[in-house]
């Protein structure tokens, strides 16, 4: 199921007319976008632009107002085993009584299936995934006693254990040390060399062109998308981050308010 090249260049992820609102606030509005079939893709945009929400909407974690999501051309239910999610580190309670290995092993649960304890072989694969991020020595450590960077590595190991073809990562570099950032970049580059796709929400405009080959500029709407070199332009960034279209924003807000609030 892993790294075979696809005969047809199907977009790894495509969304059509995706709209999401939280508490009557527009978060995503009519986003239509198709990712490249493989490679490293950054989703860039200001705070509150709906970057995380886009990833969550792919996995049906937030209710969609409208829109359709395809993974390698198929709906989520049919393609679940080919896509892996790395949530934001802050989204879970790190005080939870679990060890690094137990968390990484969650990535093997789809292979083990329901109602059964995880087979020893699967646990060893989770251990191998921890070793890939240099965390083998800390496998038995309770996750609350790890540093932020180490916690992020555990999350990455859990995602790697999924052995997916497409990864959606929510801010993998948030709050990590420089060593961990380098280690994560290496892992991501290795994944793409194997023909996999990684789509990551990224905050740092300075490093985005360095780490990623493609970009989606997002601010409630999809502003621009394409290869980093031609898309990551000052004009496009200004359109993403600037408030040029005040009347348009008002139109967007009214449309969303009308739909969700009335």
């Amino acid at each position: 199921m892993s790294a075979e090249p696809h005969p047809l260049p199907v977009p790894a992820l495509s969304v059509q007319h995706l709209s999401v609102a939280y508490h009557e606030q527009p978060v995503l509005w009519d986003v239509s976008w198709a990712s490249p079939p493989a490679g490293l893709v950054a989703i860039v945009g200001p705070n509150g632009a709906g970057k995380s929400t886009l990833l969550k909407a792919v996995f049906d974690l937030v209710p969609r107002l409208s829109g359709e999501v395809r993974i390698f051309g198929r709906p989520l239910a049919e393609a679940r085993r080919r896509v892996g999610y790395l949530p934001q580190r802050a989204s879970v309670d790190w005080d939870f009584p679990a060890t690094a290995l137990q968390v990484a092993a969650m990535g093997r649960y789809p292979c083990a299936g329901w109602f059964r304890p995880l087979p020893r072989a699967e646990r060893e694969r989770a251990r191998a995934a921890l070793a890939e991020v240099d965390m083998a020595d800390l496998a038995a450590r309770q996750i609350g006693q790890l540093s932020g960077g180490q916690q992020q590595r555990v999350f990455l190991a859990r995602a790697l254990a999924l052995e997916a073809d497409l990864y959606l990562m929510d801010e993998p570099f948030a709050g990590v040390d420089a060593a961990t950032e380098r280690a994560i970049v290496e892992v991501l580059q290795r994944l793409t060399r194997e023909g996999r796709t990684v789509i990551a929400v990224h905050h740092d405009l300075a490093t985005a062109p360095q780490y990623f080959a493609h970009v989606l500029l997002l601010n409630v709407r999809a502003i621009a998308a394409g290869p980093m070199a031609i898309t990551f332009t000052p004009e496009n960034l200004a359109r993403t981050y600037g408030g040029r279209l005040s009347l348009l924003e008002q139109a967007v807000a009214a449309a969303q308010g009308g739909r969700a609030g009335l």
Partner: peptide, 14 residues
């Protein structure tokens, strides 16, 4: 295509 849908939303509420 997007504009068409967007306009659908806007015209009823603005």
């Amino acid at each position: 295509g997007t504009a068409h849908h967007a306009a659908d939303e806007v015209e009823h509420t603005l």
